[in-house]
Amino acid sequence: MRHHLILRVIVKLLVSTMILYALYVQFHGDYSPGGGFQAGVIMAVAFIIYGIVFGLRKVHAVLPPWLVHKLVALGVLVYGGTGVVNMLQGYEFLNYGSLTPHHPEHGQHWGILAVEAGVGITVTGVMIAIYYAFAARPPRMSDEEW
């Protein structure tokens, strides 16, 4: 992996920006286009591009596969768990007004933030897990064949 110097420098610069942008899309989804799905994909792409350029071993050191598989399930749990918390507080499933009973609008904000975070975590996890699954198999061709 000593070749592709330009690629490696640019990816190093871009990965942090991509993660930052993903977080912006995630948490600014209330005000601008975007939300969990898009943010999850952008976040996953940051890790995938790092894996493509620097090799699977390096990205596994940052984000080991077992953690990715936990993330896949964690997102759904966060989403469903929000609904369960609402139920425990005596409201309907996924009625976020329960989170701050005296001011239901704020509760909606918190609830939307929580479920979008759940969506984002699951999408990130699934995309990275699929990429790992593909990349972990030995490739049939070398760089030059493209």
């Binding site: 989804g29 005000y31 601008s32 939300g35 609008e105 704020h106 909606q108 939307i112």
Partner: peptide, 15 residues
Amino acid sequence: HEIGVPNVVTAILAS
């Protein structure tokens, strides 16, 4: 006034 989120798409999707 029910959700208070400026992006209606997000309000519909998530709430």
